[in-house]
Computed example of a mutant assay.
Amino acid sequence: MKKIEKGKADQYFKEKNRYIMLYLIVGFLSSFGVVLFAGSLKGLTINGYPFHYFMGAQGAIVIFIILLFVNAKVSDSIDKKYGIDESKNESLSYGKTLDH
């Protein structure tokens, strides 16, 4: 496995952490934020249900699943940007066992 210099590794983790914080904020707002503003969101409806009820029942889960796919795509692009090749790492470690 190729070694990465410390400065580049720090940039890599800083960028990854920035996106993780963004995902956490979106997740928090879609689950708890909607509940906090339920009173002012009474007028909005989705499929005949109040918006805050829909988000509590299904919307937050759908947003979480979408965030999982977005995270996978963004993480892959960040890995490529910094020269980290997952398939190459898997092929290097495939078949290795610990000898006792």
Rank of each mutant, 00 (worst) to 15 (best):
G59S: 09
L68T: 13
K96A: 09
S91M: 13
S75F: 05
I65L: 14
L41P: 04
I78Y: 02
A72L: 03
I25Y: 08
L36R: 06
D99P: 08
L44Y: 08
I4H: 13
M1E: 03
K73V: 13
E90Y: 09
K6C: 00
F51W: 02
F13A: 06
H52A: 14
H100R: 12
S40G: 02
G48I: 04
P50S: 11
I25F: 15
N71E: 13
D76G: 12
Y53T: 12
G27F: 06
K96S: 03
G56W: 13
V70I: 13
G48S: 13
V74G: 10
N89F: 12
A38S: 12
L92Q: 08
I61A: 14
L36H: 01
I84A: 01
L29V: 12
S75T: 15
N47K: 04
H100S: 07
A60M: 06
L68W: 13
K81A: 05
K80L: 01
G56Y: 15
T45F: 14
M55N: 07
Q11T: 02
S31V: 00
D79V: 01
S31Y: 12
I20G: 05
V34W: 10
S91Q: 14
G27Q: 10
L29E: 11
G27I: 02
Y94N: 07
E15S: 05
N47F: 07
S93M: 06
L41Y: 07
I46D: 04
I46N: 02
Y53A: 09
G48R: 06
A38V: 00
I25A: 08
A38K: 11
N17H: 11
Y82V: 01
K88H: 02
F64N: 05
H52K: 09
F28H: 11
K16N: 14
G95V: 09
V62A: 09
Y94H: 07
E5S: 02
I63C: 04
K80P: 00
S75V: 08
H52F: 15
L92M: 13
Y94S: 08
R18L: 15
V70P: 00
D85S: 14
A72Q: 00
T45A: 07
S93H: 00
N47I: 03
I4D: 11
E15D: 05
M21P: 00
F37A: 11
N47M: 09
E15Q: 03
I78T: 01
K96Q: 11
L41R: 11
G7S: 05
P50M: 12
F64C: 06
A72M: 07
I66P: 03
V35C: 02
T97N: 14
S40I: 14
G59H: 06
K73R: 09
D10A: 14
K16R: 15
S40Y: 10
G39W: 10
Y94C: 02
Y12G: 00
V26T: 10
Y23E: 13
I61F: 13
F54H: 06
S31P: 00
M21Q: 14
I66K: 00
Y49Q: 10
K3G: 02
K6W: 03
N71S: 08
E90Q: 08
V62K: 12
E15V: 09
E5P: 07
L98T: 11
D76A: 12
Y19R: 04
I63K: 06
K14G: 05
K81V: 02
A9T: 08
L92G: 01
V34M: 04
L92R: 03
D10P: 04
A38F: 00
G27L: 12
